[in-house]
Design a protein around this nucleic acid. Structure first.
Length: 702
RNA sequence: AGCGGGAUGGGAUAGCCAGGAGAUUCCGCCGGGCUCAUAACCCGGAGAUCGGUGGUUCAAAUCCACUUCCCGCUACCA
């Protein structure tokens, strides 16, 4: 940890995790982008030369799959989203110096160069592996697009892990009875040669790197598990069409001769070209403004200060895989990784597919100033903390802190100055020592916040300065002094205008729009983003126009209306999950598995002995997270059945509930508890099946 | 299961890395003041043995050990 404090005389690059070109943005995403934007602006205010870049992540299987479903090419599908993002960010005043995408020429070239260099440096090798393949669709099934049965515990397993059963890591080819999660088709295994990045060789380097890494605690600590444990080499190629080609004259060929349709082309795994977009985007910035303004080559290959702002779900990529890649081609390593927490709604995560979210567009359509949301997202809780979003809290913070503290102070001070003095009284006379010291203290807090990677503290520095301003003006009561002691009144008002000017500078990273207005109200030229932090103490202009109010209060009725909308949505989303009343079917059709093609004959159906049962007792199984032990009355006998519903249902309320039971399922033992049958339930939330009328326990279902 | 993050007055949040007077800020509650300002602002008050237990120390919210409970991650959801 021997990094020099910001500002340094090196070029800094602040990046934001690439949004995946596959869906709308919601305020959870925005938290990361606003955080990055605030941080980049704050660095600049400190005088740090900074480039703020990002781009859209265009590749990967989900894009390819969804594009096909939409009947368009992956490129135009992804480009559509890319354009949406490109338009959306500026609406929130998230102003990237460059916003590219991973499929543009710069990135394709640079990625090719980097991978080639990695290979030349001996960090890449070939290996034959088994990959799942869907013969009906003539499509490879990488990663999570295959599911089947775990060979160890017999439970359902997805991708390379038995995620529901024993949790064991599975090598490619190990999953039994593989099926495509896209089509449900049975899959088969084929042998293929793939490229691997020798991450394991970087273990020692990464161990030292993680000790140097700054940023949020989660980003510094979580990767230790991987780095200090067994580092697996990464398979960096995928057998599909959409992506950046693996850069070699002779590409590894699929061993399947009749694969056809170009399926033998290997492309790079998205996580290879995605982070390289950070570099490419910086390069495009340099190409646009010239290396004398910002030199991408110096920043990335000599002595840049690289700060990655990401969601905490991609910490591994940015602290293990990516630094290893950079080191493998002699690029600069990241100085810091800031990993944001997630935002929840009523305590539950956002779910894009279920429309359980507050969308970016939706917020704008409500007519709110983006600065309000920026302030909320930047200062509500620590950056790495998960926070719950509520309109009520939004209103509270806006009304009390933005309107009451910041806006009110600026308005009352400037209005008074304008009315009584036509602006700043005798600006060159200077501010009082107390105010000078207080502003310096705020500047100090601001700098400390940046070095602490805390966007919340950046915002707090300005807001607490405004609180001081309110207290100061109140303490000196210039409205009483104005007649008796006009000189004293002038001093107080001069002080207050100075504080307002300092707020315009210090608060600009968080609230860029309103601070531009405040800046011009105190007579500033241009924008507060173009000045450095010292401007906070430079005397304001003498002549000031009548100020306008910076923020508007949000009335309570507004919150009620917003909540009503949100509640409605959440309710619909939850009903979509549990189907309690059978009409809340809001689940996105694209989310559902298609009907399995394989038909069974009637005899096969007849062999299932499905019965009506009634739950007699329900208890959680000690030591198991999800399992509950049920006693179910099947009329002819009572059965003990284990079901994975512990967290999803209130067990105490279950006795008396009628359920549908598959009675002739083979016995199984889960957590040392015998399960004799299976209680049927629908969906991820285990919505229990029951009967509409009063069928008697023991009756057969047919 | 392993790992990461968290638990602080009624609610929400800071402080913890660099231990130190009866713990921050916002909301809510009680009382007072002021009126330049957006029914705002200012002052004062009640209210927390900082999840629990044990340890280190002259001193622990802070460091250590154990423990309980939340949230999340475990390689394509920010």
């Amino acid at each position: 940890m021997s990094h020099e404090e910001f500002p340094t005389d090196r070029p800094a690059v602040v990046t934001c995790g690439l949004p995946y070109a596959n869906g709308d943005l919601h305020i959870g995403h925005l938290r990361t982008y606003v955080g990055g934007d605030v941080y980049a602006r704050a660095l600049r205010t400190l005088g740090q030369e900074t480039a703020f870049v990002s781009g859209s992540d265009m590749h990967g299987t989900p894009v390819a799959v969804n594009a096909e479903a939409a009947g368009v090419s992956p490129e135009s599908f992804a480009l559509d989203w890319h354009e949406t993002y490109e338009e959306t960010f500026p609406k929130f005043r998230v102003d990237f110096d460059n916003y590219g995408h991973t499929h543009d020429e710069t990135n394709v070239e640079l990625t090719t160069d980097v991978v080639r260099a990695l290979a030349e440096n001996g960090h890449v090798y070939e290996k034959e592996i088994m990959v799942a393949y869907d013969p009906a669709e003539k499509q490879s099934l990488p990663d999570r697009y295959v599911e089947g049965t775990c060979p160890y515990c017999g439970d359902r397993a997805r991708g390379d892990e038995c995620d529901e059963g024993c949790g064991r890591h599975l090598e490619p080819g190990e999953i039994e009875e593989p099926r495509s999660t896209i089509t449900g088709n049975p899959a088969e295994y084929r042998e293929q040669t793939h490229k691997f990045f020798r991450v394991s060789a970087f273990q020692e380097y990464l161990g030292a790197f993680i000790d140097r890494l700054e940023g949020t605690a989660n980003a510094q600590n979580q990767p230790r598990e991987w780095i200090e444990g067994d580092l697996r080499d990464w398979c960096i190629t995928r057998d599909m069409d959409w992506g950046i080609d693996y850069p070699e004259g002779e590409k590894p060929r699929s061993s399947e001769p009749e694969a056809g349709e170009g399926a033998d082309d290997l492309v790079l795994y998205v996580w290879v070209d995605a982070p390289i977009e950070y570099v490419s985007s910086t390069k495009q910035y340099t190409e646009r403004v010239g290396a004398d303004v910002f030199d991408w080559d110096e920043a990335w290959r000599e002595d840049g200060e690289i700060v990655h702002v990401i969601g905490r779900d991609i910490i591994q990529h940015h602290t293990v895989f990516w630094p290893a890649m950079l080191h493998g081609v002699d690029y600069e390593e990241p100085r810091a990784v800031m990993a944001s927490g997630f935002i929840t709604l009523n305590g539950q995560g956002f779910s894009t597919s279920r429309n359980r979210a507050v969308w970016a567009d939706e917020y704008l359509d409500e007519g709110f100033d983006p600065d309000l949301l920026r302030y909320y997202l930047a200062t509500n809780g620590g950056f790495q903390q998960d926070v719950d979003f509520s309109w009520e809290r939004f209103r509270e913070r806006v009304n009390n802190e933005l309107v009451g503290t910041v806006g009110n102070f600026a308005y009352r001070a400037l209005l008074f100055a304008h009315r009584e003095f036509g602006g700043t009284p005798d600006p060159e006379a200077g501010v009082s020592e107390e105010v000078h010291d207080r502003i310096e203290a705020a500047i100090g807090e601001f700098g400390a916040a940046v070095n602490d990677y805390s966007v919340r503290k950046v915002g707090d520095a300005a807001v607490s300065l405004a609180a001081f301003g309110n207290e100061y003006i109140q303490r000196h009561e210039p409205w009483n002094l104005i007649d008796d002691d006009p000189d004293r009144a002038a001093q107080v008002i001069r002080d207050c205008v100075q504080v307002a000017k300092a707020i315009a500078v210090l608060f600009a990273p968080v609230a860029p729009g309103t601070c531009e207005r405040l800046w011009s109200q105190v007579g500033g030229e241009g924008s507060p983003h173009d000045v450095e932090i010292e401007a906070a103490l430079e005397p304001p202009t003498a002549d000031l126009d009548e100020p306008t109010e910076l923020y508007e209060k949000i009335p309570e009725e507004r919150v009620e209306a917003l909540n009503a909308k949100l509640e409605e949505r959440i309710e619909a989303a939850e009903n979509g999950d549990t189907g309690d009343d059978g009409n809340g079917n809001d689940t996105d059709a694209a989310d559902l598995d298609p009907i399995v093609d394989d038909r069974i004959d009637f005899d096969t159906f007849e062999s299932l002995d499905i019965r009506v049962g009634e739950i007699v007792t329900a208890d959680g199984i000690e030591g198991a997270d999800k399992l509950a032990r049920l006693t179910v009355d099947l009329g002819v006998e009572k059965r003990q059945i284990v079901a994975g519903i512990k967290q999803l249902h209130n067990l105490e309320a279950l006795p008396g509930t009628r359920v549908i039971v598959l009675a002739n399922l083979e016995r199984a033992e889960l957590f040392d508890v015998e399960s004799n049958g299976m209680v049927l339930a629908a969906g991820e939330e285990a919505d229990l099946l029951t009967t509409l009328d009063d069928a008697v326990p023991g009756e057969r279902v047919r």
